[in-house]
Protein backbone atom coordinates (compact mmCIF):
# COMPACT_ATOMS: atom_id res chain seq x y z
CA UNK A 1 0.00 0.00 0.00
CA UNK A 2 1.23 3.52 -0.84
CA UNK A 3 1.79 5.94 1.97
CA UNK A 4 -1.33 8.00 2.56
CA UNK A 5 -0.71 11.66 1.79
CA UNK A 6 -0.86 13.58 5.04
CA UNK A 7 -3.68 16.04 4.85
CA UNK A 8 -4.31 17.99 8.01
CA UNK A 9 -7.49 16.00 8.56
CA UNK A 10 -8.53 13.20 6.32
CA UNK A 11 -12.28 13.14 5.83
CA UNK A 12 -12.26 9.40 6.39
CA UNK A 13 -11.23 9.91 9.97
CA UNK A 14 -14.33 11.93 10.71
CA UNK A 15 -16.45 9.04 9.57
CA UNK A 16 -14.73 6.48 11.76
CA UNK A 17 -14.11 8.79 14.68
CA UNK A 18 -17.28 7.90 16.60
CA UNK A 19 -16.40 4.22 16.37
CA UNK A 20 -12.82 4.80 17.37
CA UNK A 21 -14.05 6.70 20.41
CA UNK A 22 -16.62 4.04 21.23
CA UNK A 23 -14.19 1.15 20.89
CA UNK A 24 -11.53 3.11 22.75
CA UNK A 25 -13.85 3.87 25.62
CA UNK A 26 -15.29 0.37 25.87
CA UNK A 27 -11.89 -1.24 25.58
CA UNK A 28 -9.58 1.09 27.43
CA UNK A 29 -12.07 2.01 30.15
CA UNK A 30 -12.17 -1.45 31.75
CA UNK A 31 -8.41 -1.86 31.32
CA UNK A 32 -7.76 1.36 33.21
CA UNK A 33 -10.24 0.21 35.78
CA UNK A 34 -8.22 -2.98 36.30
CA UNK A 35 -4.96 -1.05 36.48
CA UNK A 36 -6.50 1.32 38.97
CA UNK A 37 -7.79 -1.55 41.07
CA UNK A 38 -4.32 -3.08 41.17
CA UNK A 39 -2.92 -0.01 42.92
CA UNK A 40 -5.94 0.91 45.03
CA UNK A 41 -7.38 -2.29 46.53
CA UNK A 42 -7.24 -3.04 49.44
CA UNK A 43 -5.04 0.00 50.23
CA UNK A 44 -3.59 2.60 47.85
CA UNK A 45 0.00 1.98 46.82
CA UNK A 46 2.14 -0.66 45.21
CA UNK A 47 1.45 -3.24 47.92
CA UNK A 48 -0.03 -5.73 45.44
CA UNK A 49 3.07 -5.54 43.27
CA UNK A 50 5.54 -5.99 46.12
CA UNK A 51 3.66 -9.20 46.95
CA UNK A 52 5.21 -10.57 43.77
CA UNK A 53 8.60 -10.52 45.42
CA UNK A 54 7.55 -11.47 48.93
CA UNK A 55 5.02 -14.22 48.30
CA UNK A 56 6.41 -17.66 47.49
CA UNK A 57 3.11 -18.91 46.24
CA UNK A 58 2.70 -16.15 43.62
CA UNK A 59 6.21 -16.85 42.39
CA UNK A 60 5.43 -20.53 42.11
CA UNK A 61 2.18 -19.97 40.26
CA UNK A 62 3.90 -17.70 37.76
CA UNK A 63 6.72 -20.20 37.33
CA UNK A 64 4.26 -23.04 36.71
CA UNK A 65 2.42 -20.89 34.19
CA UNK A 66 5.60 -19.93 32.39
CA UNK A 67 6.97 -23.47 32.36
CA UNK A 68 3.77 -25.03 31.04
CA UNK A 69 3.36 -22.28 28.44
CA UNK A 70 6.91 -22.54 27.11
CA UNK A 71 6.83 -26.34 26.84
CA UNK A 72 3.40 -26.27 25.26
CA UNK A 73 4.43 -23.57 22.78
CA UNK A 74 7.54 -25.48 21.75
CA UNK A 75 5.68 -28.73 21.15
CA UNK A 76 2.74 -27.05 19.41
CA UNK A 77 4.96 -25.08 17.05
CA UNK A 78 7.09 -28.09 16.09
CA UNK A 79 3.97 -30.19 15.47
CA UNK A 80 2.29 -27.29 13.69
CA UNK A 81 5.32 -26.76 11.47
CA UNK A 82 5.38 -30.42 10.46
CA UNK A 83 1.68 -30.42 9.69
CA UNK A 84 1.87 -27.21 7.70
CA UNK A 85 4.88 -28.56 5.79
CA UNK A 86 2.98 -31.71 4.91
CA UNK A 87 -0.05 -29.66 3.87
CA UNK A 88 1.89 -27.36 1.59
CA UNK A 89 3.48 -30.28 -0.17
CA UNK A 90 0.33 -32.37 -0.45
CA UNK A 91 -1.84 -32.45 -3.56
CA UNK A 92 -4.55 -29.83 -3.62
CA UNK A 93 -7.41 -32.23 -2.80
CA UNK A 94 -5.56 -33.79 0.10
CA UNK A 95 -4.60 -30.37 1.38
CA UNK A 96 -8.21 -29.27 1.46
CA UNK A 97 -9.18 -32.40 3.35
CA UNK A 98 -6.39 -31.77 5.84
CA UNK A 99 -7.47 -28.17 6.26
CA UNK A 100 -11.04 -29.36 6.83
CA UNK A 101 -9.93 -31.73 9.58
CA UNK A 102 -7.80 -29.03 11.14
CA UNK A 103 -10.68 -26.56 11.20
CA UNK A 104 -13.06 -29.11 12.66
CA UNK A 105 -10.71 -29.64 15.58
CA UNK A 106 -10.32 -25.85 15.78
CA UNK A 107 -14.05 -25.50 16.31
CA UNK A 108 -14.64 -28.19 18.92
CA UNK A 109 -15.36 -26.67 22.32
CA UNK A 110 -12.62 -26.80 24.88
CA UNK A 111 -14.90 -28.55 27.38
CA UNK A 112 -15.71 -31.33 24.96
CA UNK A 113 -12.02 -31.85 24.26
CA UNK A 114 -11.17 -31.84 27.95
CA UNK A 115 -13.68 -34.48 28.85
CA UNK A 116 -12.81 -36.54 25.80
CA UNK A 117 -9.22 -36.68 27.00
CA UNK A 118 -10.43 -37.92 30.38
CA UNK A 119 -12.43 -40.64 28.65
CA UNK A 120 -9.45 -41.63 26.51
CA UNK A 121 -6.51 -41.29 28.86
CA UNK A 122 -8.11 -41.35 32.31
CA UNK A 123 -7.39 -44.03 34.89
CA UNK A 124 -10.13 -46.27 33.53
CA UNK A 125 -9.99 -44.73 30.08
CA UNK A 126 -9.87 -46.53 26.76
CA UNK A 127 -6.08 -46.47 26.48
CA UNK A 128 -5.32 -47.65 30.01
CA UNK A 129 -7.91 -50.40 30.01
CA UNK A 130 -6.75 -51.65 26.60
CA UNK A 131 -3.12 -51.72 27.68
CA UNK A 132 -4.07 -53.49 30.90
CA UNK A 133 -6.21 -56.05 29.09
CA UNK A 134 -3.44 -57.02 26.70
CA UNK A 135 -1.02 -57.13 29.63
CA UNK A 136 1.45 -54.41 28.67
CA UNK A 137 0.97 -52.59 31.96
CA UNK A 138 -0.24 -53.76 35.36
CA UNK A 139 -1.04 -50.36 36.86
CA UNK A 140 -2.82 -47.64 34.92
CA UNK A 141 -0.50 -44.90 33.63
CA UNK A 142 -1.32 -41.47 35.06
CA UNK A 143 -1.76 -39.46 31.88
CA UNK A 144 -4.38 -37.16 33.35
CA UNK A 145 -4.89 -35.04 36.49
CA UNK A 146 -1.27 -33.89 36.46
CA UNK A 147 1.02 -31.62 34.49
CA UNK A 148 1.34 -34.15 31.66
CA UNK A 149 -2.43 -34.11 31.30
CA UNK A 150 -2.45 -30.33 31.14
CA UNK A 151 0.24 -30.37 28.43
CA UNK A 152 -1.58 -32.99 26.34
CA UNK A 153 -4.81 -31.01 26.54
CA UNK A 154 -3.17 -27.67 25.79
CA UNK A 155 -1.02 -28.87 22.90
CA UNK A 156 -4.05 -30.52 21.32
CA UNK A 157 -5.95 -27.27 21.60
CA UNK A 158 -3.12 -25.12 20.28
CA UNK A 159 -1.89 -27.09 17.25
CA UNK A 160 -4.43 -25.55 14.81
CA UNK A 161 -3.44 -22.09 16.03
CA UNK A 162 0.17 -22.96 15.24
CA UNK A 163 -0.56 -24.45 11.83
CA UNK A 164 -2.54 -21.59 10.32
CA UNK A 165 0.08 -18.79 10.42
CA UNK A 166 2.87 -21.18 9.44
CA UNK A 167 0.79 -22.49 6.57
CA UNK A 168 0.12 -18.97 5.34
CA UNK A 169 3.80 -18.06 5.34
CA UNK A 170 4.85 -21.34 3.68
CA UNK A 171 2.33 -20.86 0.92
CA UNK A 172 3.93 -17.56 0.03
CA UNK A 173 7.39 -19.11 -0.47
CA UNK A 174 8.38 -19.12 -4.10
CA UNK A 175 9.14 -22.72 -5.06
CA UNK A 176 11.70 -21.58 -7.62
CA UNK A 177 13.98 -20.42 -4.81
CA UNK A 178 14.23 -23.99 -3.61
CA UNK A 179 14.92 -25.23 -7.12
CA UNK A 180 17.63 -22.63 -7.42
CA UNK A 181 19.18 -23.83 -4.17
CA UNK A 182 19.16 -27.45 -5.34
CA UNK A 183 20.53 -26.52 -8.76
CA UNK A 184 23.39 -24.70 -7.07
CA UNK A 185 24.35 -27.91 -5.39
CA UNK A 186 22.76 -27.77 -1.93
CA UNK A 187 21.43 -31.04 -0.55
CA UNK A 188 17.79 -31.35 0.48
CA UNK A 189 18.69 -30.93 4.14
CA UNK A 190 20.82 -27.86 3.42
CA UNK A 191 18.04 -26.35 1.35
CA UNK A 192 15.62 -26.83 4.21
CA UNK A 193 17.81 -25.36 6.95
CA UNK A 194 19.35 -22.53 4.95
CA UNK A 195 16.57 -21.54 2.58
CA UNK A 196 13.18 -22.91 3.53
CA UNK A 197 13.34 -22.42 7.29
CA UNK A 198 14.54 -18.80 7.11
CA UNK A 199 11.85 -18.02 4.56
CA UNK A 200 9.13 -19.45 6.81
CA UNK A 201 10.52 -17.75 9.89
CA UNK A 202 7.87 -15.05 10.02
CA UNK A 203 5.13 -17.66 10.23
CA UNK A 204 7.05 -19.57 12.83
CA UNK A 205 7.44 -16.53 15.05
CA UNK A 206 3.81 -15.55 14.58
CA UNK A 207 2.70 -19.05 15.53
CA UNK A 208 4.93 -19.14 18.60
CA UNK A 209 3.71 -15.72 19.76
CA UNK A 210 0.08 -16.52 19.18
CA UNK A 211 0.28 -19.88 20.92
CA UNK A 212 2.25 -18.53 23.86
CA UNK A 213 -0.10 -15.61 24.42
CA UNK A 214 -3.22 -17.75 24.26
CA UNK A 215 -1.56 -20.28 26.58
CA UNK A 216 -0.96 -17.65 29.24
CA UNK A 217 -4.69 -17.29 29.77
CA UNK A 218 -5.65 -20.97 29.81
CA UNK A 219 -8.21 -21.78 32.45
CA UNK A 220 -10.41 -24.79 31.85
CA UNK A 221 -7.76 -27.28 30.74
CA UNK A 222 -5.35 -26.79 33.69
CA UNK A 223 -8.26 -26.65 36.14
CA UNK A 224 -9.75 -29.97 35.02
CA UNK A 225 -6.87 -32.01 33.60
CA UNK A 226 -4.44 -30.80 36.27
CA UNK A 227 -6.51 -32.40 39.02
CA UNK A 228 -6.15 -29.24 41.11
CA UNK A 229 -2.38 -29.60 41.33
CA UNK A 230 -1.38 -27.50 38.34
CA UNK A 231 -2.39 -24.03 39.38
CA UNK A 232 -1.93 -21.52 36.58
CA UNK A 233 -2.36 -17.82 36.76
CA UNK A 234 -5.77 -17.58 35.07
CA UNK A 235 -7.39 -19.95 37.55
CA UNK A 236 -5.71 -18.18 40.43
CA UNK A 237 -7.07 -14.83 39.24
CA UNK A 238 -10.54 -16.28 39.01
CA UNK A 239 -10.35 -17.65 42.57
CA UNK A 240 -9.14 -14.26 43.86
CA UNK A 241 -12.03 -12.48 42.13
CA UNK A 242 -14.83 -14.91 42.92
CA UNK A 243 -13.95 -16.65 46.17
CA UNK A 244 -11.39 -14.81 48.25
CA UNK A 245 -12.39 -11.32 47.03
CA UNK A 246 -8.77 -10.17 46.81
CA UNK A 247 -9.48 -8.09 43.75
CA UNK A 248 -6.28 -6.11 44.14
CA UNK A 249 -4.13 -9.23 43.77
CA UNK A 250 -6.25 -10.39 40.85
CA UNK A 251 -5.96 -7.03 39.12
CA UNK A 252 -2.21 -6.96 39.70
CA UNK A 253 -1.80 -10.39 38.09
CA UNK A 254 -4.04 -9.37 35.19
CA UNK A 255 -1.94 -6.24 34.68
CA UNK A 256 1.19 -8.35 34.83
CA UNK A 257 -0.13 -10.65 32.10
CA UNK A 258 -1.13 -7.67 29.97
CA UNK A 259 2.27 -5.98 30.27
CA UNK A 260 4.04 -9.30 29.84
CA UNK A 261 2.33 -9.80 26.51
CA UNK A 262 2.98 -6.21 25.44
CA UNK A 263 6.64 -6.52 26.41
CA UNK A 264 6.87 -9.71 24.39
CA UNK A 265 5.42 -7.98 21.33
CA UNK A 266 7.79 -5.08 21.84
CA UNK A 267 10.82 -7.36 22.10
CA UNK A 268 9.74 -9.16 18.98
CA UNK A 269 9.29 -5.88 17.15
CA UNK A 270 12.98 -5.14 17.74
CA UNK A 271 13.91 -8.14 15.66
CA UNK A 272 11.33 -8.12 12.96
CA UNK A 273 8.51 -6.09 11.55
CA UNK A 274 5.40 -7.18 13.43
CA UNK A 275 3.26 -6.39 10.41
CA UNK A 276 4.99 -9.17 8.47
CA UNK A 277 4.46 -11.56 11.35
CA UNK A 278 0.76 -10.93 11.37
CA UNK A 279 0.47 -10.86 7.61
CA UNK A 280 -0.31 -7.14 7.36
CA UNK A 281 2.10 -6.68 4.50
CA UNK A 282 4.25 -8.85 2.36
CA UNK A 283 7.90 -8.30 3.08
Amino acid sequence: MRAIPRHALNAGWILVLPFVVLVGALFLGPIFNILWLSVSDPTPGLGNYTELFTSDSLGRILWTTLRVCVICTAISVVLGYSIAYAMVHAAEGTRNKMLGLLLVSFWISVLVRTFSWLMLLGRNGVVNSTLETIGIISEPISFMRNELGVLIGMVHYMVPYAVLPILASMQSIDGRVLQASRSLGATGTQTFWRVYLPLSRAGLVAAALLVFIINLGFYVIPAVLGGGKVLMVAEYISVQVLVTLQWGTAAMLAALLLFGVLALLFLMSRFMKLSTVFGGARA
Binding site: D56, S57, R60, I61, T64, G228, K229, V230, L231, Y236, V239, V243, T244, L245, Q246
Partner: peptide, 14 residues
Protein backbone atom coordinates in the same frame (compact mmCIF):
# COMPACT_ATOMS: atom_id res chain seq x y z
CA UNK B 1 -11.00 -16.45 57.06
CA UNK B 2 -12.00 -17.71 53.62
CA UNK B 3 -9.32 -15.69 51.81
CA UNK B 4 -6.44 -16.89 54.00
CA UNK B 5 -7.66 -20.47 54.12
CA UNK B 6 -8.32 -20.84 50.39
CA UNK B 7 -5.01 -19.32 49.34
CA UNK B 8 -3.04 -21.35 51.85
CA UNK B 9 -4.84 -24.47 50.67
CA UNK B 10 -4.16 -23.73 47.00
CA UNK B 11 -0.52 -23.18 47.81
CA UNK B 12 -0.33 -26.47 49.68
CA UNK B 13 -1.84 -28.57 46.89
CA UNK B 14 -0.28 -26.95 43.84
Amino acid sequence: NTDTAVNAFLEAIS
